[in-house]
């Protein structure tokens, strides 16, 4: 077909590609990420904060709790399947999500957009914190599964460093925030709360959940640095 062309027209840059309808597996990986955040990770978070709360009752009670948890049947398997692997996956895939999102809260400073951005940064804080926390408290130093009554002492020594205490407090708030908003997001994205009012009401529930968890967690931390058990000796059951 006849044409009259101008010399060498510029080419457009390629933009966002269209939907790969029905292709790929990102759906399952993303949904797994979302689901794992609630169960088992959320459930474990709850358990962990409740256990920590035992520390308020003293080194012995805390040691008993650690001992109890470590006496569960197949506890090492449970630990890997329901805690470490899900955490690792949720953390690494979450990191990947963070990498690919392009926060624009500077231009669109709207509430939901702030929450989107905060969710990503609380996730990053949580990931960094949990790596060091698991490494230092679970895999190095005194082995708590074998020596459950050393638990209070080990944590107390850790928190005696004010920097580390600050890290724990910040991480505790970040994690509770991340979890509470994660629950809200889960309900919204899985279509449990499609209605605007339902989302708003559930938002209040999640705020209460977040604040409650954060109080619980901070109380647990306070047990180690508060006036009740200064430089507590290793208890004997």
């Amino acid at each position: 077909m006849a044409t009259v062309e101008s010399p060498a027209s510029p080419q457009l840059r390629s933009g966002v590609e269209p939907l790969r309808a029905g292709q790929g597996s990102s759906f399952i990986w993303r949904k797994l990420h979302s689901l794992l955040g609630i169960v088992p990770i959320g459930a474990f978070l709850l358990e962990h904060l409740l256990s920590n709360y035992e520390a308020l009752k003293g080194p012995l009670a805390y040691g008993n709790q650690v001992k109890f948890l470590n006496s569960l049947p197949m506890v090492r398997v449970l630990e890997w399947v329901f805690i470490f692997l899900p955490l690792l996956y949720h953390g690494l895939y979450g990191f990947y999500i963070w990498l690919r999102g392009k926060s624009n809260v500077v231009y669109y400073p709207w509430a939901g957009n702030w929450m989107y951005t905060i969710q990503r940064y609380t996730g990053l804080i949580a990931l960094a914190y949990i790596i060091q926390h698991v490494w230092r408290q679970r895999f190095t130093g005194v082995m708590l599964p074998e020596n459950p009554y050393y638990a209070f002492h080990k944590v107390q020594v850790e928190l005696s460093n004010p920097w580390m205490l600050a890290i724990y407090v910040i991480a505790m708030i970040a994690i509770c925030w991340h979890f509470a908003y994660g629950v809200w997001l889960f309900a919204a994205k899985w279509g449990i709360t499609p209605g605007v009012n339902a989302r708003r009401r559930f938002g209040y529930v999640c705020i209460a959940l977040g604040i409650g968890l954060a109080c619980l967690g901070l109380a647990g931390i306070f047990a180690f640095v508060g006036p009740w058990y200064p430089s507590a000796p290793i208890p004997t059951p």
Binding site: M1, A2, T3, V4, E5, S6, S9
Partner: peptide
């Protein structure tokens, strides 16, 4: 209207 090329279409 982008490249300003003319073309005949039958």
């Amino acid at each position: 209207l982008r490249t300003m090329d003319l073309q005949a279409f039958m």
